[in-house]
C-alpha cells in the first residue's frame, strides 16, 4: 500500500489552489525582455529573451529566441534556445533548435528538433535559481 501512496506524489506537484488567468501574446506582438508569471502564458507572436512561467504554450505561429523556465511547456511553434521544464511536449508543428532540460518529454511525429535533451531529476528544477551556462 505504501507504494500506492508514492504514486500520488507527482500529481500533487501540479496542483494549484486557484486557476491563474491566461496571458497571451498575439501574432502581431513582438516582445524583447523578461516575462515573469505564476500562471499560464500563450505565445503566438515573437519573443526574444527569457520567460519564467508555470505553464507555457508556444503557438504554431509563435517564435521564441531565448530561455524558457517553466513547469510545463507545450511547443507548436519555433524555438531557438533552451527549455528548463519538468514536462515538455513538442507537437507536430514544433521546430526547435537548442536544448531541452526535462524530466519527461514527449515528441510528436512530425516535430523537428535539433540539439540535446538532457534528463534531470525533479529536484533539479525546484532548485533552479540561476540558469547554467551552456555552449550553443
Amino acid at each position: 500500500m505504501a507504494a500506492f501512496l508514492n504514486l500520488t506524489k507527482p500529481q500533487q506537484r501540479g496542483r494549484k489552489p486557484e486557476p491563474m488567468p491566461v496571458s497571451q501574446l498575439g501574432t502581431a506582438c513582438l516582445v524583447r525582455g523578461v516575462l515573469d508569471t505564476e500562471g499560464e502564458v500563450e505565445i503566438h507572436g515573437t519573443f526574444h529573451g527569457r520567460i519564467n512561467a508555470d505553464c507555457l504554450i508556444l503557438g504554431a505561429m509563435g517564435n521564441v529566441e531565448g530561455d524558457i523556465v517553466a513547469r510545463e511547456v507545450r511547443i507548436r511553434g519555433r524555438l531557438m534556445g533552451r527549455v528548463f521544464a519538468l514536462n515538455v511536449l513538442l507537437e507536430e508543428t514544433a521546430d526547435v533548435t537548442g536544448r531541452i532540460f526535462h524530466n519527461t518529454v514527449t515528441v510528436a511525429r512530425g516535430a523537428r528538433f535539433e540539439g540535446r535533451m538532457p534528463w534531470r531529476p525533479p529536484s533539479y528544477f525546484e532548485a533552479l535559481d540561476q540558469l547554467p551556462e551552456t555552449q550553443p
Binding site: P21, G26, H44
Partner: peptide, 18 residues
C-alpha cells in the same frame, strides 16, 4: 489558437519592450 490581440494578465510581469 492564433489571436492577434495580446493580453497581459494580472499575474504577469514583462521587463522590456512590448
Amino acid at each position: 489558437h492564433a489571436p492577434s490581440v495580446s493580453v497581459i494578465s494580472k499575474a504577469l510581469k514583462i521587463t522590456g519592450q512590448l
